[in-house]
Nucleic acid binder design. Structure first.
Lengths: 226, 226
DNA sequence: AAATTGAATTATGAATCCATAATTACGTCA
DNA sequence: TGACGTAATTATGGATTCATAATTCAATTT
């Protein structure tokens, strides 16, 4: 929300914010694997900070849903179960659809051009089989659509959920068939955006999301966290 | 998410959680008015706690969006502007619609009966002009629908946004016209739920939400926080 | 009189310390 | 050998302390 303390400030970021970003990355990238206990003291030593900012950071990550705090027992990295997945999917679907509708109302030609460029580059990476680069551009495109929707509240909500899934998406390798399908969907996404067809875009994005979810679901079923 | 530390624990709640709940209420009820600075030290004395748990609580509330932290400058209660409102509305609308659809898929006859009972009581309060009691039951009904939807992720997201608006809804007096309209909509909500008509319920809930928003918007326009 | 500088005050950020709950390790007994 | 109970250890929750950034306010200058 919009409460600005009177004066714009340049101050350096507090330690706990720095820690939140570091820890979030560590969780998303699997350095801190799901279900593992978070060794508060060890982390403090590793980062060279005292427990106070670390504890503040853990409180923040708990609200974001990435870790779970148990009174007097410490912090655990939250697991992602198939059940969780089935809960998160409809919520993200609703948000994703909304982002598509809003983006079509508001996107500028310039923003569209940027997305188109990223799309072309992404397709190149797909053709060359460069998974990591593909994923980077993919993320960038979805981020840009969210940006074009021009709704900070929506973006924040979406990103919070996305972070919880990204851990699994990070590990799950898409099959060739699903990958091809995803690229085809991206073509449709671009077309709908260009036509400013919000209803269409919402539908495509939702389908695209389902694709992602199936990938994660299969991975979870195999590498089973229960 | 579902990570349970191995053993279920009965332990007493940490202080900072207690504080989060207290402060959230104080903000929602206007004891800490929007835009005001939060006097950390004073609050610590008032509650008889040290600064450590208080600061942890402030971090949590900042993630929830109820307060705004400025490095080295302290915490302010976030304001709600009309611009914020227009951002939050579509997001809540999407979540509200989803909750309606899911509730229709899953609600049990027993849950429906409870909601019907609450509805009857609420209508009584409306007829008698008891605003406070009406609001309490109203909130209870919406809570029950969210419960019936059986999606904890959805519920958490919705409640976070709702808390940010409740401050204004708390103060804004609905006009007689809007109040009557709201009650009429609640009749429709009940009917759609009973018929398990998810599409219909989603539409009604969304319209109902718009009603609420217009009330808040008018109040904001008058008692203008910009 | 208004504005600017600098000292005094106050509040925040972070580290350390202490009490207590939880876990682990060990020893005893069935 | 295995289960139980108790002591030792460890980790967490909370209070306190210290350093530093921000604010206040008075004094000086224009």
């Amino acid at each position: 929300m919009t409460t600005e303390p009177n004066i714009a400030t340049i101050a350096r970021r507090p330690l706990h914010m720095e820690l939140v970003d570091c820890l979030r990355d560590m969780i998303v990238e699997g350095t801190l694997p799901p279900g593992s206990k978070i060794p508060e003291r060890d982390l403090c030593e590793r980062f060279g900070v005292s427990r106070t900012p670390m504890r503040e950071a853990l409180k923040v990550l708990a609200v974001e849903g990435l870790i779970l705090l148990s009174p007097n027992r410490g912090a655990w990295v939250s697991k992602l179960t198939i059940g969780d997945l089935e809960e998160v999917f409809p919520v993200m679907g609703a948000l994703e659809a909304l982002s598509g509708e809003l983006a079509c109302e508001r996107i500028t030609d310039e923003q569209l051009a940027d997305i188109r460029a990223a799309h072309e580059e992404m397709v190149e990476h797909y053709r060359a089989g460069r998974r990591a680069d593909y994923f980077r551009l993919n993320r960038q495109i979805h981020h840009a659509i969210l940006e074009a929707a021009g709704n900070a509240t929506l973006a924040a909500q979406y990103r919070a959920l996305d972070a919880r899934l990204r851990r699994a998406r990070y590990l799950a390798n898409v099959s060739d068939r699903r990958w091809a399908q995803a690229v085809a969907e991206h073509e449709q996404i671009l077309a709908a955006l260009a036509a400013r067809d919000g209803t269409k875009l919402a539908a495509v994005l939702k389908q695209h999301l389902r694709n992602k979810f199936e990938t994660v679901r299969e991975w979870l079923a195999d590498h089973g966290e229960r």
